[in-house]
Nucleic acid binder design. Structure first.
Lengths: 336, 336
DNA sequence: CACTGCTGTGAGACCGTTCCCACATGGGAC
DNA sequence: GTCCCATGTGGGAACGGTCTCACAGCAGTG
């Protein structure tokens, strides 16, 4: 790593490092001769400014930490959170930030501390964060935004979807297509989004005059494909004998897991059973039959989070709390 | 960001910053009294060492850059590369590195330069890198390893799978189960892995005495689900009339795309057609019917890459070129 | 001619650490 | 009593930049 430094450039150009610094940054005066000389040397020696040294004096690293709090699945290959990360990466590059990515399986603040030591300009927190982690981070005065967190916290910028509204859309779609007996797989109710999706769904069902006794609600311990499959397998008899014509799961992975079991039992989808998921992960469109679902714009979440964080970092006045993202029903092959 | 500094701790403890530094690092002598006092203050003031300043003097940032060169899909949500990244994240945390993640769509060295400016200790390069990018990085003397790159480059540590062997395994599996006419969807031949998978497959087929005229080979422009679907749709007549009983695609996404089209035409899998993919992405086991495939251990790739890079960074002598990962056939529902 | 303001430059402090070196004290060996 | 060594401490340079300040030259103005 014997990269040339500003001092080396200055020495060779016969000027002071102040002059070189001025020329590089474009602030302040410099003569055309000095400019040519220095710029030529920069090109010749392949000088790359040292971002570490810059951070040292400017007290800004231009780095952002993305912390994913999950116990089950890793981050990047997660079908939903992975998309958020992608969008974060893209938007961050546009705004000249670099991104540290970390997963925290302990749900502690160990990794948050690590990011603090690295002196990131800000943090993006995703999924299941605990109140104490939030408090911890707040303590250090590091700007941060939450994305799809498990709970809302007062005063914290939190980017979420209109999950309750989405649940309502599912109910409407199913009731309008004539379904009366609906089987529901509900993801962890400790998580805000699963909770609201279920609530919106149930409220709407009730308004349609369908008795709750006509809906069977299974609660899932995790929100994975395997869990969906397992629940369906376990409840198969109840499902078959109950005369259910529709299945709603509070996310796509649960829905597809259950659907896979149904297909293995030669249940025809959608002829015999209609299935609706939630999120619109990439696989939803690829599955066979493709899955009707509520699209949550993960990309938009990622983009917004960086955008808002950038405003917080730059200490812009009155950064507005973002409005919730509007979900959209996407009808595919799994419902009729 | 008014975190306390070492100087502040020193002032309050009534000692010099040298002493504080010694106590924190554990190098050199210090009296129990000084130690207690300083450690107490660190706890009380929630002192977090400044990694930027440390990097400044130690000339080591303990940061690693992950560069993914792709034109089509983003990184994190990529079903195969995402898994590599996950493993990298995990292993890096274990070895006390932080990870910068970047995607480069231009296939230029813009993002490599960016990482150089950030003075990462090393780079992990994934997928389609060009020779000139490699040269560029080599120029700066930054340690790096390649993972599943499009081509091998002399002297560069490159972690890959035994793709040719995997292709052979596919051929054996299909011929042993009695298939004679096989339809092949071959991903971009400019990429090492797709090229070798096809080659291994064809070599083995030929050895089994099957004429090449019995195999139809379709070349795919990309290696995506959509491309697989599209190719199958386009070649549907040829496929049906050709009497093919098996389909091999050089990766899972292509295979599942094609499979989805077949299912939509009410082709029964595996009764009428057997399908084999390559990679064993998560979705392969979830698809219905689940996909028989060759497992490439993406996790192992990620872990190894960090491990090797760490050795390069620490300038260990004779770091050995890793042997190629051994693939494994995983038989699922899509073949019989 | 004195004053002002623009252009151009360099010296040096500073960011928060680490680490080398100097130095002081005290006990044990000779 | 002298010397040596272990223990404990502080001063200050260095890492590679940015930025403030001082200062010099020179043209324009009244």
């Amino acid at each position: 790593m014997d990269n040339p430094t500003i001092k080396e450039i200055a020495r060779r150009a016969g000027v002071s490092k102040s002059t070189v610094s001025r020329i590089i940054s474009g602030n302040g005066y410099s003569s055309p001769e000095a400019r040519n000389k220095v710029l030529g040397l920069i090109e010749e020696l392949q000088y790359k400014p040292n971002a570490v040294a810059r951070a040292m004096v400017s007290q800004r690293t231009h780095n952002i930490g993305v912390l994913l709090y999950r116990r089950d699945l890793p981050i990047a290959s997660h079908p939903f959170y992975g998309k958020i990360v992608d969008a974060v990466l893209l938007e961050a590059a546009r705004l000249n930030y670099s991104i540290f990515v970390t997963t925290d399986h302990d749900m502690s603040y160990r990794s948050a501390d690590f990011m603090i030591e690295k002196r990131v300009d800000g943090l993006i927190l995703i999924s299941r964060l605990q109140q104490n982690v939030i408090d911890h981070i707040t303590n250090f005065g590091i700007p941060f935004v939450m994305v799809n967190g498990s709970t809302d916290v007062d005063g914290v910028i939190h980017i979420v979807n209109q999950d309750e509204e989405g649940g309502r859309m599912v109910a409407e779609h199913l009731t309008q297509t004539g379904h009366k007996r609906i089987f529901v797989i509900a993801g962890p109710q400790s998580h805000r989004s699963h909770h609201l999706r279920l609530r919106g769904f149930l409220t709407s069902i009730r308004q349609s005059g369908i008795q709750e006794s006509n809906a069977s609600i299974q609660s899932a311990g995790t929100s994975t494909f395997g869990e969906g499959y397992e629940i369906m397998r376990r409840e198969w008899n109840q499902f078959r004998e109950g005369g259910y014509t529709a299945l709603f799961a509070t996310n796509d992975m649960l829905a597809m897991g259950a659907m896979k079991f149904l297909l293995e039992q030669s249940v025809r989808i959608p002829e015999q059973v209609s299935v609706v998921g939630f999120d619109d992960v990439d696989f939803a469109a690829m599955f066979s039959p493709s899955l009707t679902t509520i699209k949550v714009d993960a990309g938009d979440m990622g983009t917004k989070s960086v955008h808002l964080l950038d405003q917080l970092i730059r200490q812009e006045q009155n950064v507005e709390h973002p409005s919730q993202l509007v979900p959209r029903l996407i009808v595919r092959q799994s419902t009729k």
